[in-house]
Design a protein around this nucleic acid. Structure first.
Lengths: 217, 217
DNA sequence: GTCTATAAGATGATAGAC
DNA sequence: GTCTATCATCTTATAGAC
């Protein structure tokens, strides 16, 4: 790949992170890259397509970095620990901010929407595998949906990142609270058969409850 | 308040929701309002200040709508039910999308950052009161931090909303998974003293664990 | 308070020299 | 592949008529 193309891809990512989707333009990106503005259109046709390519690259790079560590995770505690490390590293690299800005712009731009969908699906698929493995044989498997959980984790990270830029202390307390929820899940695990029975009967009761209200309406 | 000012405030909110922070301008807002573009600067000085005023109005309006219902919540089940209704209504009104776009823009614009901070703090303070009331006398009170939880709920809603615009099905599965976590919390509640003991010993063990690793490093 | 007109600059995108 | 120059269009913001 040509030097200019690489420079533009990297500059697109860091500019999106630094000035946000509202401040992003061919000129701001080109300045960061130290490259002529017209080259964006020569190499990528539109600004939007450059951002798409930059996102794809960033996602694949950082996912490759974690794949080995994901594979090693065997317990819930290990998963939570890796989750914290991953979140901190990705945040420091600016990848989460980049995703959040991409998603904000995606509400209006179909190109960006596709890029965001790809990034989220790629991450979620990877997380889902680990969650599924960790929750197997846990009492939680009766209620947990690994795919939904993986998506929820992604969504929460995005929300937390935007929160972080607005109210640092509040975002931190939110992250701590979510980690405490992890403790809750661990305790549930420790309780084993007791928890499993309680969860199963709660699920049965809830299902009956909603069925009843469905049929009586 | 003059008719034009009201029109502009409403138009700012709905335009931010519809075209996002990247597409927001004095002209797009004025067109939505059916009003001359120059009037934005006459009434609000800058576009950014108009958005700030519009946010404040939207937050106070919708919070006033829920205050009575918040006060009535007495149990965790009721809180989860209200939470779902609130989320659906606010989403349909576009208030969550407005907040998400505001937060995306806030990363660069100090005016918007202040508005976002105000909105989040206002909502979180209200949620915190209810969470605190509901968790009192629950086994969860040993680990739960009501303020952090309230902030986490806000952050997750924002993330889910952006997710929604990008991948509807995935966002829905994430929401369902989070509601299942609610079931988990209910079961913990049902388990009463058993859960309380398990949580307390887990908390003690975790604290000892982290202290140990602190002193051995 | 509201309008038109306009300044002064930013934006995406292209044509054409090198 | 890269540059300069330029376009049409958009932006915030103001001055001044009504």
């Amino acid at each position: 790949m040509s030097d200019t193309k690489t420079k533009l891809l990297d500059a697109a990512a860091s500019t999106l992170r630094d000035v946000g989707i509202a401040g992003l333009s061919a000129r701001t990106i080109a300045t960061t890259a130290g490259v002529n503005q017209a080259l964006i259109f020569y190499h990528f046709n539109t600004v939007s397509e450059l951002v798409v390519a930059a996102t794809k690259q960033a996602v694949e790079e950082s996912l490759a970095y974690y794949q080995a560590e994901f594979a090693k995770v065997g317990s819930l505690v290990e998963l939570l620990r890796l989750g914290r490390r991953l979140h901190e590293r990705e945040r420091d690299l600016g990848n989460v901010q980049m995703m959040a800005q991409l998603m904000a712009g995606a509400q209006q731009d179909e190109n960006l929407a596709q890029a965001a969908r790809y990034a989220l699906q790629t991450w979620s698929a990877e997380i889902e595998l680990v969650v599924r493995r960790v929750l197997a044989n846990s009492p939680l498997e009766v209620i947990a949906d690994p795919r939904g959980l993986a998506n929820a984790v992604s969504a929460s990270f995005i929300g937390l990142e935007l929160y972080e830029g607005v109210d640092h202390a509040a975002a931190n307390s939110a992250l701590d609270a979510l980690e405490q929820l992890g403790v809750l899940v661990e305790v549930m695990d420790d309780l084993g058969p007791v928890a499993r029975r309680a969860l199963q009967s709660k699920v049965r009761r809830t299902r009956r409850g909603s069925q009843k209200s469905d049929t009586t309406v």
